[in-house]
């Protein structure tokens, strides 16, 4: 088996269809308030009050499920791709193996929740951006991009879904999301701890890792999916992120980037419509 497994080769059964993030970004459509929908709701935040709440929650849950599969695959690759001791510390690999088990459970949980919500495996397209961030040749970059940026997003998503379940009175959703949230905080912490430890005497490497993290944060905020604005479906979960080792400055930066991304998406839709011939 090769070291460093390319994202295009991720193995899936016949039910799944995958798209790269570039392909997904080429879709300029928004889910923002327009026309009739504007009248029906004043916020995009994913709450049961939204008229499309059920389908939006189902689609998000499917996104979570495939994200968990990729998180599992990414952590697994970090166990294999680097020589123990020389390229990655033994203890870091143990953490990644632990993460494999957690992510495998998260897939199991998400599959069951998807069934409960009436979603079939592979019903929606799978964006492979999470695994793409796990393909870096530097384990520290993987930890920054996956554990800190993407698992940070997972904290925001699970917090939103947990609230959704509580408001709807769904006995399974809130229960499961709370458990997954506990694991994800641990994973983000792993990222924070290892980033600090490994780059303690290597400021250049740390800078590169943090840059990579903010690039990944930006990619995931594309379209304003997650921010502190009511227009974003997913709320930036500040408190849980603090627990996971993010500083105040970092949180403000993520919030700013996310809001900028929301505005970019708005402009993209307008531009596409204006530039096409009538």
């Amino acid at each position: 088996m090769r070291k460093f497994f390319p994202v295009e080769d991720l193995a899936r059964d016949e039910r799944f269809n995958q798209a790269t993030n570039e392909e997904r970004m080429a879709d300029p459509r928004g889910t923002s308030n327009t026309g009739v929908i504007r009248k029906a709701r004043s916020t995009n935040r994913l709450t049961p009050l939204r008229p499309d709440a059920t389908d939006a929650a189902r689609s998000l849950m499917h996104g979570i499920m495939v994200g968990e599969i990729q998180a599992l695959e990414g952590a697994g690759r970090t166990c294999f791709d680097f020589v123990t001791g020389e390229e990655a510390p033994f203890a870091l690999k143990l953490d990644m193996a632990r993460q494999c088990w957690d992510e495998a459970r998260h897939v199991e949980i998400s599959v069951k929740l998807s069934e409960w919500m009436g979603t079939e495996l592979g019903q929606f397209i799978e964006n492979t951006v999470l695994f793409a961030a796990a393909c870096s040749q530097d384990p520290v970059l993987r930890l920054a991009g996956v554990n800190r940026a993407l698992e940070g997003l997972a904290i925001d998503v699970f917090t939103t879904m947990k609230e959704f379940g509580e408001l709807a009175g769904d006995p399974y959703l809130a229960f499961c999301e709370d458990w997954m949230l506990a694991d994800e905080v641990t994973h983000v912490k792993m990222g924070s701890v290892w980033l600090r430890k490994i780059t303690e005497n290597d400021p250049e490497r740390r800078k590169k890792a943090l840059e990579f993290q903010s690039v990944v944060d930006k990619i995931f905020s594309y379209g304003g999916l997650r921010s502190e604005s009511d227009e974003s479906p997913i709320l930036l979960a500040r408190r849980f992120r603090e627990l996971a080792g993010f500083s105040d400055g970092e949180l403000t930066e993520i919030a700013d980037v996310s809001l900028a991304a929301l505005n970019e998406r708005r402009e993209a839709v307008e531009k596409t419509l204006a530039s096409s011939p009538a």
Binding site: M1, F5, D9, L10, I69, E73, G76, C100, F131
Partner: peptide, 16 residues
């Protein structure tokens, strides 16, 4: 290590 590496390579979800 090899079990971790193989996760991404197997299409069967239960095996994964």
């Amino acid at each position: 290590e090899v079990l971790g590496g193989w996760i991404a390579t197997v299409p069967e979800i239960d095996v994964k």
